[in-house]
Every structure is written in structure tokens, then in C-alpha cells.
Amino acid sequence: MKKALFLLALIFIFFSCTNNDTSVSKQYNPTPFQFSQQIPERDFPLYIPADNPLTVEGVELGKDLFANKILSVDNELSCTSCHNPDKAFASNNRFDKGYKGKLMTKNTMSLTNLIFNKYFGWEGSHSSLEEAILSTIENKDEFHENWDNVIVKLLDAGYADKFSKAFGTDDITPNLVAKAIAQYLRSNVSVNSKFDRAYYFEDSSARFTPLETKGYELFLSEKGDCFHCHRVGPFFDNRFHNNGLDAHPEKGLAHVTNEASDIGKFKTGSLRNIAITAPYMHDGRFKTLKEVLDFYSDHVNYSSTLDPNMNHEGGIYLEEDEKEAIIAFLNTLTDEKYLKK
């Protein structure tokens, strides 16, 4: 019996030893990140890569880097220069200014709820958030910086310790910079609007007005037909569509896929916090939600890739009070608490 116990102890020691050997350095002990709000699980698949789980330390470092001009050449720009934290990380300019004041050719996207996204960029240029971030920093028209410089600047500014806390290594690499920012962006979740409180959380103080109800019903009806692309929950669908902005559309998704059938298709924009992220569409062509509704109502252009969910006869022909109702509904998607953060 004693022998058996001894043997057991030996085995135990052996395994605990090997365990010790393979574990990373002792100080690396990050705290798992908790979302500050409940995410109604049923409508929101989360996209978190296995090799980049959210940690408190990673999110904090990402937040710092996101607002830090150190990443750009001559310390000219930070992510927040265009992605304004007070505007759900969108921008109210049609086109923001990049390197040396050069105008961007697309409207700055809102960086909210990216944790629900599979593709990034209006044309779906990136299928991972980390990759999208790396490319922004390298982009000639945006940060224009090369990585060797970024890393030297970060080391000089004493970031080694922060990286060590977040990732268990003080060897700063482009991938770790992207990972930290990606963690921060994935932590930016906005699912606490009036709509959410009424629809998911059954909060009686968030009851819809008759106008908002009418708007929601139109949104969900086959007349308005918004829901087929702006799916209830995230209010986008992780897909690309040609919604008829132009009779001779830009390449859009075809830029990436080279397929003629993808011409004119762009990433469906999320409608969350839409009231405060004007102007609208990939080129910021509409200044107000009223202009957006006028477009969907009367100015939809036919081209051979126009989505079947769009009305091919010029639009869905809404009455003015119907447009008003849909806008009232869209306003219920503003998450005041998130914006105050």
C-alpha cells in the first residue's frame, strides 16, 4: 500500500514537474476581460480568435495604443484622429484626412461591435480584425509608418512592461500591437439602446412610442424590407450587397474577389448608433437619415448586381410619414450609455 502511494506520489510529481516546465513565465497572469453589459447571446455570434482572447491588460494596452500618435509617421495621427470615440468611433466628416492631410476616398467606419464582424472594410479587404489593423498602420495614405520605427518608438516610450503584462513577453512585435488594439476594439460593445431594452431585456421603461413601433414594423415588413440585410440584433449581416446607390457602381467587393458578380457590393453598414454617425454610405454621400430614406424610397438604381431584396422599380416608395417612422425607429438604436463611456 505504501509502495503504491509512493508510486502515485512519484507520478504526481512527474506530471506537475512537466507542467511547470511548459508553462510561461510566472508573472504572466492576465485577467480575463468581462463585458460591462449583458450581450443577448441569441442573436450575436462572437468572433474571437483562439490566439487572442480578451484580457483586461490587453484591452487597456489596446486602448492606449488606439489613441496614441506614436504609431504614425512624425507622430501625426492616431486612430482617434478619424475614429472619434464620442461618435461611436465613426467620424462626421465625409472623408477624413490621412497622411500629410491627404483625403481618404471612403467614409470612416464606426468601430463599434466589431466583435460580431467577420469581414472588415467597406470592400471586405480583410477577413481578420488583426490583419485590418496591421494594414492601417502600414497604409501609405494613413499612418505611413514602418514597423521598425514604431517598435523603436514604443520601446523608447517604455511600453515593454505593458506588453509583458498583456502578452507575457516584452518583445514588441507588429502582431502584438495589432492584437492589443483588436482586443480593445472587440471590447467596444453597444447593445444597450432603447431597442435592446425593449426587445431583449423587456424593460418596461423602454416602451416604444406608436411612431417607433410603426417604424419597426415597416423595417420588418416586406415593403420596407430593411431586415433582410440589416438583420435584427447586430443590424448588419456579415455580407456584401449592391443596394443600388449607382447605375454604374464602383467595383466594391469585386476589388477583392475579382468577380463580375461582386461589382457594386459593399459591406452592409450596422445601424447601431446610426443617428450620430452621419454622413452615410461607403462614400459618405448622404448627410442625413432623411436623405438615406429618400434614397431607399425613390432613387434606387438598377445595375446587373442589384440585390434582389431591393425593389428594382426605383425604390420602395415610402410616404413621408413612413420615412419619419423608420427614422424614429433608427433613433432607438442609439446607445446613450455606450456613448458616454
Binding site: 441569441r42 467577420k118 426587445y199 431583449y200 431586415f227 435584427v232 456579415n238
Partner: peptide, 23 residues
């Protein structure tokens, strides 16, 4: 049929299923 925060009948981890959303 479901409402509120009730669970979907199909796994809620697949966007493509959720995209078949019926209002």
C-alpha cells in the same frame, strides 16, 4: 416560436443560420 432572450432552435453561433431570420 420564440420571444425575448429565449434560445434559438438552431445553434446561435452561426451567422448564416441567423441570417435566415424570419420576422
Amino acid at each position: 416560436p420564440i420571444k425575448g432572450t429565449e434560445k434559438h432552435s438552431l445553434p446561435n453561433t452561426v451567422d448564416e443560420y441567423l441570417d435566415m431570420y424570419w420576422p
